[in-house]
């Protein structure tokens, strides 16, 4: 008899516990999406911890894995902006990017700028790497370009500079008060990393518009939103305030973490 009661009680309690679980999700944690919420700000400190831990544990020059040619099994999947519609970009595109200039400015001894042909004539590096989108997917492709570090050295970065801000042509978001242009940023470790190249070639072809023509920066140890397409200017700064909402990038301004290495 005792066994029967136990089993009946067991089933009844299980149903109660189970229905509690179903109600568990719901919307009571939506406040965590509010960037001004103090709890959200505490939770976001974990991103700083991740950044500092990875910088402390991963060598500054340590390379991202490079794959073999046989592991390129498909084209590079484009997403984000794939066809910028600003007049400035469409003009350059119509001119085959001949008037394009890549510029380094900000906290540098001398501002420098280069045409696409000049970039192509600089020492080139090719790397077959895996592109990891923050959404979760990955895609392997061969990127060809010239390393950013030596170009920064030509401009002679001033000692106080802490970040490189990457300015792009593409209007990632169109609002009633005008276009929002894509930008992102990195520390100088990522800017000077040997695999950080101004890529103008993809899978042995000129970089297509959908993938960021004429120049896309690769930061191979970070997620896709740290690989700015349609790049025209690198600005050296000591603070990210004053750009967008001050969080260091278009996606970063919407709440994505700045470092992007996880």
């Amino acid at each position: 008899m005792s066994k029967l009661i136990t089993r009946r009680n067991f089933l009844r309690s299980s149903v109660v516990a189970g229905s509690g679980l179903v109600l568990a999700g719901c919307d009571q944690f939506n406040f965590l999406a509010d960037q001004s919420n103090p709890i959200r700000q505490v939770v976001e400190r974990a991103n700083v911890l991740t950044y500092q831990a990875q910088r402390a544990l991963i060598g500054e020059q340590t390379l991202a894995r490079e794959y073999s040619a046989s592991e390129i099994r498909q084209g590079q999947r484009p997403n984000g902006s794939t066809d910028p519609t600003t007049p400035e970009y469409q003009f350059l595109r119509a001119q085959d990017f001949v008037p394009y200039r890549f510029t380094v400015k900000g906290m540098v001894e001398r501002e420098v700028s280069f045409s696409l042909d000049e970039l192509r004539n600089m020492p080139a590096r090719s790397q077959i790497t895996r592109h990891d989108c923050v959404e979760g997917w990955s895609c392997i492709a061969k990127w060809t370009g010239t390393p950013l570090g030596p170009i920064l050295d030509m401009a002679r970065v001033k000692p106080g500079a802490r970040y490189a801000v990457y300015h792009c042509f593409d209007n990632i978001q169109r609002t009633i008060s005008g276009d929002i242009l894509y930008y992102t940023s990195s520390d100088l470790v990522d800017a000077y990393h040997p695999q950080s190249i101004l890529s103008y070639g993809l899978n042995d072809q000129p970089l297509p518009v959908a993938n960021g023509a004429p120049v896309r920066l690769r930061i191979e140890r970070a997620l896709g939103y740290k690989q700015p397409k349609y790049l025209h200017t690198v600005e050296l700064v000591d603070s990210l305030e004053g750009f967008g909402r001050g969080r260091g990038g278009y996606w970063e301004d919407t709440g994505y973490d700045w470092y992007g290495g996880i």
């Binding site: 959200r40 974990a46 991740t50 709440g255 994505y256 973490d257």
Partner: peptide, 11 residues
């Protein structure tokens, strides 16, 4: 809201 999901997940 992928951004918030990631922030909370990593915390």
């Amino acid at each position: 809201d992928l951004a918030t999901g990631r922030v909370v997940h990593f915390f």
